[in-house]
Computed example of a mutant assay.
Amino acid sequence: MSNVTRLHHALPLSPEIQSAVNALDIAIAKAVGAAKAAGLPQGLVVSLLHGHAQVQTNIMVS
């Protein structure tokens, strides 16, 4: 995912948070790569990611 621009928070993040963000980014990229290699349709990958984002958003605002 070298063609993806990462957005940065306006305030400085702690090294622990930055490390966690980097690890999450790498894990997501590997999982998407594995899903694509296994032949999952791109729409299914996108819908799964969107579904998880929706659930986490709902948790944050509840």
Rank of each mutant, 00 (worst) to 15 (best):
M1W: 01
M1D: 05
S2N: 12
N3M: 13
N3T: 03
N3F: 14
N3P: 02
V4C: 08
V4D: 11
V4S: 07
V4I: 12
T5A: 11
T5V: 03
R6N: 10
R6A: 09
L7W: 04
A10P: 02
A10N: 07
L11D: 12
L11V: 04
P12T: 04
P12K: 13
L13G: 04
L13A: 10
S14F: 02
S14M: 01
S14D: 02
P15R: 07
E16Y: 06
I17F: 08
I17R: 15
I17C: 12
Q18H: 11
Q18C: 11
Q18S: 15
S19A: 14
A20E: 15
V21G: 01
N22E: 15
N22T: 10
N22S: 12
L24T: 03
L24F: 08
D25E: 09
D25Y: 08
D25A: 07
I26P: 01
I26S: 15
I26W: 05
I26V: 14
A27G: 01
A27H: 05
A27Q: 11
A27Y: 04
I28G: 04
A29M: 00
A29L: 04
K30C: 05
A31F: 07
V32K: 08
V32E: 05
V32F: 08
V32T: 03
G33P: 01
G33Q: 07
A34C: 09
A35W: 04
A35L: 07
A37G: 03
A37M: 05
A38N: 10
A38S: 11
G39I: 01
G39V: 01
G39L: 04
Q42D: 09
Q42A: 11
Q42M: 09
Q42N: 12
G43S: 01
L44A: 13
L44Q: 12
V45C: 15
V45A: 15
V45W: 03
V45P: 00
V46D: 11
S47W: 02
L48T: 00
L48V: 14
L49R: 00
L49S: 04
H50R: 05
G51Y: 06
H52V: 06
H52T: 03
H52S: 07
A53C: 10
A53K: 06
Q54T: 13
Q56F: 12
Q56N: 10
Q56R: 10
Q56M: 13
T57E: 12
T57Q: 14
T57D: 06
N58K: 10
N58H: 12
I59Y: 14
I59E: 15
V61F: 02
V61Y: 07
V61W: 03
S62C: 12
S62I: 14
S62M: 15
